[in-house]
């Protein structure tokens, strides 16, 4: 079966800093892929390039046989690749319900249908379904600015899923979440995603999460993929142990063009 997403030799330089160096990877449909690496290793740069926020210096990104390298984020979203953010990007002065309704309204809009009423029965039904699926119904009428971090993360992911993407990229879904909450959150997310039959790539620092939820690991180091294997193999790989797991002290001089800094 041909891959759903393919990176062909993509590189990205910021001046003298190399954030991605000849990255080649092919993702098949329905895979759940974990992207690991120390800060500055090029994980978020990779996500940013796939979703169009950054353009690679060289190389090609192919989605379902189509070159998407030069497209804008909104065009890539329309094609079926969506993402969540490390720092949730939600509409802070709107309620959870309004956030989702806005997202649904945009997703349903093609051309002039963006002028249809936003509060219409079909969207409202979908909105309620999303609230239930992501377990945030209790916060329906809370302002996004007042939400606990975990709920805001879920909202962020739910908004990314509104367009029913073929691929979802999650940027550190558990960062900022307490240890006893993280599995609950991931269970909710992963079961919701399974229902939607979406291919998932997620950036993660937490090896427990990686071990538990992914079928394949991509380990980044200095912009390169140093390991591409199932978790059982990858997490014991000597290079991964040395350069990824060993370097898990949090350097914050992040050289990545981070969208959510």
């Amino acid at each position: 079966m041909s891959p759903i997403l393919e990176a062909r030799g993509i590189s990205k330089n910021f001046g003298a800093v190399t954030a991605a160096k000849d990255v080649n990877v092919a993702i098949s449909q329905d895979e759940v892929v974990g992207i690991i690496g120390a800060n500055g290793a090029g994980k978020t740069t990779f996500v940013n390039m796939v979703t169009g926020y950054l353009k690679p210096t060289s190389g090609q990104i192919v989605f379902e046989g189509r070159d998407i390298t030069q497209l804008e984020p909104r065009q890539i979203t329309r094609l079926g690749i969506c993402r969540s953010f490390q720092v949730p990007q939600v509409f802070m002065t709107e309620t959870v319900y309004e956030n989702l309704l806005t997202a649904l309204g945009i997703a349903a809009a093609t051309g002039f249908s963006v002028l249809r009423y936003m509060k219409r029965p079909d969207l409202e039904t979908q909105c309620e379904a999303l609230l239930t699926r992501y377990g945030i119904g209790d916060y329906r009428d809370h302002l996004a600015s007042s939400l606990p971090q975990g709920v805001r993360k879920l909202l962020d992911i739910a908004m990314a899923m509104v367009a029913r993407p073929r691929i979802l990229l999650l940027d550190e879904p558990t960062s900022g979440i307490s240890t006893d909450e993280k599995f609950g959150l991931m269970d909710t997310v992963m079961s919701a995603l399974r229902e939607e039959k979406v291919t998932v790539l997620f950036v993660e620092h937490d090896m427990e999460i990686v071990e538990r939820y992914v079928g394949r690991v991509l380990a980044f180091y200095q912009g390169e993929i140093i390991c591409d294997a199932p978790p059982a193999e990858a997490l014991v790989d000597p290079k991964v142990k040395e350069f990824v797991i060993g370097e898990e002290h949090h350097r914050r001089d992040d050289a990545e063009g981070n969208a959510d800094a």
Partner: peptide
């Protein structure tokens, strides 16, 4: 309000 709050998200919603 969406644009006032967060332009990035609007773009990423398509």
């Amino acid at each position: 309000t969406a644009i006032r709050d967060n332009e990035i998200r609007v773009e990423y919603l398509g």
